[in-house]
């Protein structure tokens, strides 16, 4: 299953909600969700721990727009919109954690 998260984890609990609910699959960070994937962010240890269960992706355009594409946490895969489409196609279900 693909979990789509569009909120910063320091502002809202969307990503926490995914980690507490899901038991694996893929997480795609988009919009303000991409802040979760930055080095030195207070959420970084949680994200790294989550990598044991989830494959983490972040939308390249959203990283670049926010000036953080050069400090993406190791292990996070950047994807473009075409990659976003592939992730949706490759997973039977997806959930946007609004």
């Amino acid at each position: 299953m693909l979990h789509i998260v569009n909120k910063s984890p320091l502002d809202r609990n969307s990503l926490d909600a995914v980690l507490g609910t899901g038991d694996g699959g893929a997480i795609l960070l988009i919009e303000d969700g991409v802040y979760a994937a930055t080095k030195g962010n207070a959420y970084e240890p949680k994200l790294k721990a989550a990598m044991a269960k989830f494959k983490i992706y972040a939308l390249q355009g959203d990283l670049e727009a926010r000036g953080i594409s050069d400090r993406v946490t190791d292990g996070v895969a950047a994807v473009d919109y075409a990659g976003f489409v592939d992730l949706v196609a490759d997973n039977k279900t997806n959930q946007s954690w609004l």
Binding site: N6, I30, E31, D32, G61, D80, Y81, A82, F84, V85, D86, A89, L98
Partner: peptide, 26 residues
């Protein structure tokens, strides 16, 4: 699409996703 234009990025993201899907032949 659950949000209006400009205030939230939702409509922009939906547009880019839709366009990318169409360009990939979906």
């Amino acid at each position: 699409v659950s949000e209006g234009p400009y205030t939230h990025q939702a409509s922009d993201s939906a547009y880019q996703f839709t366009k990318a899907a169409l360009e990939k032949g979906h």
